[in-house]
Design a protein around this nucleic acid. Structure first.
Length: 285
DNA sequence: CAAAGCTCCTGACCGC
DNA sequence: TGCGGTCAGGAGCTTT
């Protein structure tokens, strides 16, 4: 379940390994992902030098010089493996779910694999990319300076759905998914069933701070590896060991002083929510 | 416009 | 051991 911290970890791995290098070949083994991999991918980027790689929400955007931007989304089970040219790259043999393999001019291989094929890899013209499809309406980056309680409150205004579901809306805040929505609500002491628009003022500030701190800690840990997620060198993230409530049904919450087995699981908008009913209050404080 | 429901997909897991 | 059923979940689409 790659969310912002996992995507950021992958972005950093990519940036370190391929910025300044150019694409020498692109092998598309399977096109039918969530969005079809464009037929002109190889023709569009071959020979182009990678200038920059940025992240917006859960998307990675790669900028090859003089070419369209490559939009990459890891979906549910997507993974990027980087094989250094001098060693592992030459021994690489494509696995079942390796869909797109980029080979750089120094033989480094970038392998995009995704068993469930919820991921996406497509091209958008680099000029004005931020104003196009998924990005134009996307909410603020929670780790950028402009994000605070006032901004969050504004984006929650008028929302009648519960706060947990609202946090999953990428137009409210970018990059937060199921795990970190649960974790941030716990840290801020807000009950997941609270009406979204009722979270304002001091509480909106607490929630914004909680989102930032949880995401920062997760990035520092290299993300959370539950099933499929790996860093670009194949190693595991380890933030899953630091979850306060996520996937802890009928167990103790972080720093628990409640009766034991306090963590409850409910389903909201078809997604699991984990929370502590003792520490997360239904009434605004 | 908002929000809920549905869909895509496959590996993992459970119970018999 | 093997098989069928269920689940997970990001985002886009459809329905209400």
């Amino acid at each position: 379940m790659p969310e912002l911290p996992e995507v950021e970890t992958v972005r950093r791995g990519l940036a370190q390994s391929i910025i300044g290098k150019s694409f020498s070949s692109i092998d598309v083994r399977r096109r039918d992902l969530r969005v079809s991999v464009p037929g002109n991918l190889a023709a569009a980027i071959k020979g182009c030098r990678v200038e920059d790689i940025v992240r917006r929400g859960k998307y990675i955007v790669i900028f090859p010089e003089g070419a369209p931007a490559i939009i990459l989304h890891l979906g549910m089970s997507g993974r990027v493996d980087i094989l250094k040219g001098n060693s592992s790259g030459s021994k690489y043999k494509a696995q079942k779910h390796d869909h797109v393999i980029f080979t750089m001019n120094d033989k480094t291989k970038v392998v995009f694999s995704d068993p469930r094929r919820f991921g996406m890899l497509y091209l958008v013209s680099a000029d004005g990319w931020e104003n196009k499809k998924p990005f134009s309406a996307m909410g603020p980056e929670p780790l950028e300076p402009g994000f605070d309680g006032a901004v969050l409150e504004e984006n929650l205004r008028g929302k009648k759905c519960n706060i947990k579901s609202a946090l999953l809306d990428q137009n409210v805040v970018a990059g937060v998914g199921n795990i970190y929505a649960c974790e941030a609500l716990f840290v801020s002491g807000i009950h997941p069933e609270r009406q979204a628009a009722s979270v304002k003022g001091r509480e909106a500030g607490l929630l914004a701070d909680a989102i930032r701190s949880v995401l920062k800690k997760a990035i520092a840990a290299g993300g959370s590896s539950l099933k499929d997620y790996r860093k670009t060198d194949g190693s595991l993230g380890y933030f899953q060991h630091s979850f306060s409530v996520y996937d802890k049904e009928s167990r103790k919450c972080a720093g628990c002083t409640c009766k034991d087995k306090c963590v409850q699981r409910i389903v909201q908008a078809g997604r699991s929510t984990f929370f502590c009913p003792v520490k997360q209050k239904k009434k605004a404080s």
